[in-house]
Write a protein that binds this DNA or RNA. Structure first.
Lengths: 151, 151
DNA sequence: GCCTATTGATAAGTGTACTGATGATTGGTA
DNA sequence: TACCAATCATCAGTACACTTATCAATAGGC
């Protein structure tokens, strides 16, 4: 089989394109966030006060990676991080007013990214594709170091 | 919409799992290659004497990235790189005997990775999924910095 | 109330991926 | 033929993504 037609190669290619579109759309909207930073910020907005390990589980990232991502969000003033009173090992995360404003500003760009990603497919095809993609992933969830975990 | 059900998130998740499976399978086979290194090595084997820019185009990687990947393949003794006589800007790449042996040894692990990736889907579903994934990507090929280019 | 296993976070190191800039070389053109 | 835009590669810099190791703090068993 042609190596460029294997699921592994196509998975990488699709993700690579998704990231490129995201950057382009977000920059056009006048923002400066990476895909991971956006995912983390959106989750922190949803669940204020959560700790880094829980955040990592929610969006299926490695815990160490999330540490660096949160560092950058704090540097940009979008997120506040402070030691939890309940558990002094943990850092509680909260979105700042600036962060909330950015999140609102960036929303259309994110939606547009998702639309473009499926733009090569018809409506029915897109629905079918998403269904199969979710199904394939669900069967494999535990096979990566950073499985998705519910809050 | 739940942010964990967007195509962008699922794309990342699927690729993340694909890489994790690849590492596990390849390590179990007693080899030490990353997914990118494997892709590059396989292509160099197919088209001996090609230059880095062409290689990058064939597997849709950024040219700068490929430089580092080839560095590591050369360090491991799997690839030979020498300045082209036709065009002294270019480096011609060739697989070594060691490289060819590794490629052969690793083949079953790679095949198994591809099988596992689709293991959550039935036969018909898997075929449909691959078809749609290819179609979605084909429509977007030019939207990343590293589009796929034919040899 | 102490010991230990677990958990949250960080540190160091490897390998992508990309941007932007620079240098070397080439081939077509004024 | 002298030049000049295009091309191949590299370098510096940023940001993931992961591994292993380490440290601090907590929780449970006895």
């Amino acid at each position: 089989m042609d190596a460029t037609e294997t699921p592994g190669h196509l998975a990488r290619r699709f993700q690579q394109i998704a990231v490129a579109i995201f950057y382009a759309e977000v920059e056009a909207a006048g923002c400066d966030l990476t895909p991971v930073q956006y995912a983390a910020l959106a989750r922190i907005a949803d669940a204020p006060g959560l700790d880094q390990a829980t955040l990592a589980g929610l969006i299926a990232y490695d815990r160490t990676t999330i540490g660096g991502v949160v560092d950058r969000l704090v540097e940009k003033g979008l997120v506040a991080r402070e030691i939890s009173r309940k558990d002094r090992r943990a850092r509680e995360l909260r979105i700042t007013d600036t962060g909330a404003a950015i999140l609102k500003k960036i929303a259309p760009a994110v939606a547009e990214t998702q639309r473009i990603l499926l733009s090569g497919l018809g409506e029915k095809e897109a629905a079918q594709f998403m269904k199969l993609l979710k199904k394939a992933i669900a069967a494999l969830n535990d096979l990566s170091r950073a499985p998705m975990r519910e809050g």
